[in-house]
Simulated assay, not measured.
Amino acid sequence: MTVHPFTYDAAPMRVRFGAGVVEELPAEIGVLGLRRALVLCSPEQEETGRAISRALGAHSAGVLAEARMHVPVEVARRARDRAADLGADSCVAVGGGSAIGLGKAVALEHGLPVVAVPTTYAGSEMTPVWGLTENGRKRTGKDRKVLPVSVLYDPELTVGLPVGLSITSGFNAIAHAVEALYAPDRSPIVSLMAQEGARAMAEALPGVAVGDFAARTAALYGSWLCGACLGATTMSLHHKLCHALGGTLDLPHAPTHTVVLPHVLAYNQDAAPDAVDALSRAWSTRDPARRLWDLAGELGAPRSLRELGMAESDIGRIAEQALRDPYANPAPVTYEGVAELLRAAWRGEPPG
């Protein structure tokens, strides 16, 4: 085994995991030295957000149920202004990537610490990556001040997540692990976490599809590992494409990851043998890209960009966006290669 030079920089946050742990949120706020938190959630999660607000009691500054996919800049500004008007000294982001992304935007612009309570497997809570969408373009960046100061993983909060969204959210998490395995700044610890996270999530998803609570618990464990990998490494072609598809075409975030991931993995497999070996061990296969595509089909997840609402005529401009700004990727990124990848993903063809 050859160990290459690396840097390992652990994320500075508390993590609490277990069924019912959200009941300890008021105590957690106190431990962190915070006083009044604005609860952020999406309109679909408003009932959960208000339950969290009631549980916080005097620690709650109110609820803002306006989180949306890809964090539109105007929503971020409203959240920032609401927090200031209510005298909040922190935010509790309840939900998936939309709510936690909104919390990050407030942290970025207003400096308020965020406590994350994930209800999906997106993994955003473990990363310093923020994103804002304005005028049809999604900007992303990294800043450690957007990292939540505490994350509470309670599998009981994932029970109400619809099965279809649970499955695509799980594929979103796997995407973090896949890219971490061939990232230029990976480390042995992150690679171990990525392999275990990918294994745990893929193994749990069939159980999640039939409502098994133990499987949901295992999936939340997998999402934590996968999200931590995303937070510790550099994103590549897969995330670049998904950000372009989401920010430009407003395609749904997790389903887009689900469709695109097998094709990007196939694009990179020949150039990333160590990643292929790790995923082969995790999934007991010699073709990880095809295994992912097959798993999506077995679980009834989307497998084409066409069914997500993308027009075939959009392939060219998304491919052009993927070539803007340099970034690391195992295989060379060319317009022809990316356009062909997108054509296969649009049609719903097997990867590779």
Results as ranks from 00 to 15, higher is better:
K104V: 13
L112K: 09
R78P: 00
E66P: 02
G101A: 11
Y121W: 08
L40C: 12
V115Q: 01
Y121F: 15
G97H: 04
G101K: 09
L56M: 08
L40A: 09
G49Y: 09
V75M: 07
G33R: 07
T119Y: 03
D85E: 15
S98N: 08
V71M: 11
G96P: 07
V94D: 04
R36M: 02
G62M: 12
L108T: 02
R77D: 15
M69W: 09
V39N: 06
V106Y: 01
T48C: 12
K104C: 12
E44P: 00
R36K: 15
R68F: 04
A107G: 14
G103D: 09
V114A: 05
V114R: 05
E109P: 00
R36I: 02
A93H: 01
R78G: 00
I52W: 02
Q45R: 13
V115S: 01
A65M: 08
R36W: 03
A107W: 11
E125C: 06
V39F: 11
A76W: 03
L38N: 11
H59R: 15
D89K: 10
W130A: 02
G101Y: 10
G97P: 03
G62R: 10
G57C: 13
R80E: 15
S60E: 11
D85H: 12
L56N: 02
L32G: 02
L102H: 10
M69I: 03
D89S: 11
H110F: 09
G101W: 11
R78N: 03
N135W: 05
L86F: 05
R36V: 03
V114W: 10
V117P: 06
V63A: 04
W130L: 02
G49I: 07
G131R: 04
L32D: 02
G96I: 10
V73M: 08
G101I: 12
V106F: 03
P128Y: 12
C41I: 11
L86W: 04
R80P: 00
G97F: 05
P43R: 05
R35V: 11
V75H: 05
I100D: 00
P113V: 07
R77H: 13
T127I: 05
D85S: 13
V73R: 14
L132A: 09
G136F: 07
P113E: 03
V75C: 08
C41H: 06
A76R: 00
P72I: 11
A83L: 13
G49D: 04
L108E: 01
A76V: 04
A55R: 15
L108V: 03
A51Q: 14
E109M: 14
E47N: 02
L64Y: 01
E109T: 14
P118C: 04
G103K: 08
S53N: 06
G103C: 10
V63Q: 02
E134T: 09
T133I: 11
V75A: 06
H59M: 09
L112Y: 08
A107T: 12
S90N: 04
I52K: 01
A83P: 10
A55K: 13
G96T: 05
D85N: 04
S124R: 10
L64E: 01
A65I: 09
